[in-house]
Design a binder for these strands. Structure first.
Lengths: 171, 171
DNA sequence: GTTCCAGTCTGCGGATTTCGCAATCAGGAG
DNA sequence: CTCCTGATTGCGAAATCCGCAGACTGGAAC
């Protein structure tokens, strides 16, 4: 049945055509579909179709394609602090050498939930989710800093999550 | 997959992990449900029930409750860069005076998708999503810095999103 | 002990949604 | 014009969602 892993291809490793801005062929209709699912990830296809002007089957096909292409994922999101993960941090990383290879190494760590290459005084920003202080300490000091190419890190431990939305489409 | 029910029925609803921030208490079964929905936000209730050892109706009630309580949300998430928002940045903010009031002001801005209070050389970390350079410039220089109490900001413009997952529960 | 009582779970119909597929339609390319 | 390829539609069949009534559990009060 639904036992397939529904593999989460994370925000696309190396797809040349997609790295340019604008992304793949996302027309206004697909945008509208995404917008609908940003309000409610379980909204029925028929309701979405009524909102965007398509049939139920067409919406279903487009959604499946967007999922397969990795353009979007439909998931439950929580505040980890309320679900047992007591230590979270944003870690700024400075790299010497190839930034992308370091980013790949960090991406492979399950504790790193969010990895982004940036311009500014950090080359990478990484969000780390841990169970406690010891765990956090180990991830930052023993694992992230052990990655070849990592020159230095700076940590910002989360005190309180104030906002977390995904409805940029609706404004 | 997890073929084995995660918890026996006798898992009492009150054996929560503590949450100092007044968050609702979650037992092992609810955690398992969240975990299922982190893999696939549209997974049928019956399939979830089979995985966690509950009936379809029970899963449905618990999911509805988790949504109502704001413990989790089921939504579509995307990489904004692939969907028309060409400029994204993490902004570190230093505050003098009441941090929380500044955080509330930033939370009210629709361009701020993510606001978190931190310990470290920044008091707040804010993720900003904009349409172009002008938009980003205006948000950072004219709006964020105009908030009373903001002493200084430092920006990290996103170059490429490498990873974005929500499956902390499955590891 | 017994009796509420609130919260949760189960079972089960009926309404709704999802699924798969064949047919139809739209837009190029040759 | 014809042949493609891809998107869309319509429609039964199967699966899922939904609401509700009854049963179960643990705790509090007596």
């Amino acid at each position: 049945m639904h036992s397939e892993p529904v593999a989460s291809r994370s925000a696309d490793p190396r797809d040349s055509r997609e790295s340019r801005n604008g992304g793949p062929q996302l027309d206004a209709v697909s945008l509208a579909i995404i917008e609908q699912l940003q309000e409610d990830g379980r909204r029925p296809y028929a309701a979405i179709g009524k909102a965007v002007g398509l049939s139920e089957a067409a919406v279903r096909q487009r959604v499946q394609k967007l999922l397969d292409q990795g353009v979007m994922q439909i998931v439950a999101v929580t505040d980890p602090l309320t679900v047992g993960f007591r230590r979270q941090a944003m870690v700024g990383v400075n790299v010497e050498g190839d930034v992308e290879s370091v980013a790949d190494a960090l991406t492979a760590m399950s504790e790193c939930e969010y990895v982004v290459m940036t311009a500014g005084s950090f080359d990478l920003m990484v969000e780390v989710v841990c169970e406690d202080d010891d765990h956090l300490l180990e991830v930052i000091n023993r694992r992230i800093r052990a990655v070849p190419g990592v020159r230095s890190t700076e940590s910002f431990v989360y005190m309180k999550l104030k906002k977390q939305t995904y409805m940029w489409g609706t404004r």
